[in-house]
């Protein structure tokens, strides 16, 4: 039994602690906003925050959690009002949308750490894959979100 702090809720996880956080979140906790894309930390669709830092949850076993605060897209804001979500809505960033929850989590972690992120900061920090190819609007969205922080 592992106690997890997810989106401010204390929850018990009674599965195998080798389970990647991604699957614990999706299957045991029903938080399906965090997506499976590759399982090898390449694509970033599974990005969540662990103590505020962006983490690719598909390779992060439950056992590695020791009381940290876990935030998923469902906990980023109650109502889609986080500045990044607002900017995304304003610019119609998503296409299929499947990677966008991970993208938003990666971007929100970046802007928390670096509210003045430049284009080169973005290039360095945001390495999520989007096969629809939303990158042009993602970049615009990040700059717009900066104005809403």
């Amino acid at each position: 039994m592992k106690t997890l702090n997810v989106n401010g809720d204390i929850v018990e996880f009674d599965g195998d602690e080798d389970t990647p956080l991604l699957w614990a979140l999706r299957e045991q906790l029903g938080l399906t906003g965090t997506k499976y894309g590759c399982g090898i930390a390449q694509c970033g669709a599974c990005t969540i925050h662990v103590d505020g830092e962006a983490v690719r949850s598909c390779v992060y076993p439950v056992s590695a959690i020791e009381g940290e605060e876990i935030t998923t897209i469902e906990g980023l804001s109650k109502d889609g009002s986080h500045p990044v979500q607002q900017a995304w809505a304003e610019l119609d960033v998503p296409q299929c949308g499947y990677c966008q929850t991970g993208m938003i989590m990666a971007v929100s972690a970046l802007l928390k750490e670096n509210p003045k992120a430049t284009d080169s900061d973005i290039d360095e920090a945001i390495t999520n894959i989007c096969r629809c190819g939303t990158f042009a609007r993602v970049r615009k969205g990040i700059h717009l979100a900066k104005t809403k922080l």
């Binding site: 938080l31 399906t32 906003g33 965090t34 998923t72 897209i73 469902e74 980023l76 804001s77 109502d79 889609g80 979500q85 995304w88 809505a89 119609d92 960033v93 998503p94 949308g97 966008q100 929850t101 938003i104």
Partner: peptide, 9 residues
């Protein structure tokens, strides 16, 4: 169809 793509809903 954008709103629900931003929240995981």
């Amino acid at each position: 169809d954008t709103a629900e793509k931003l929240t995981g809903a």
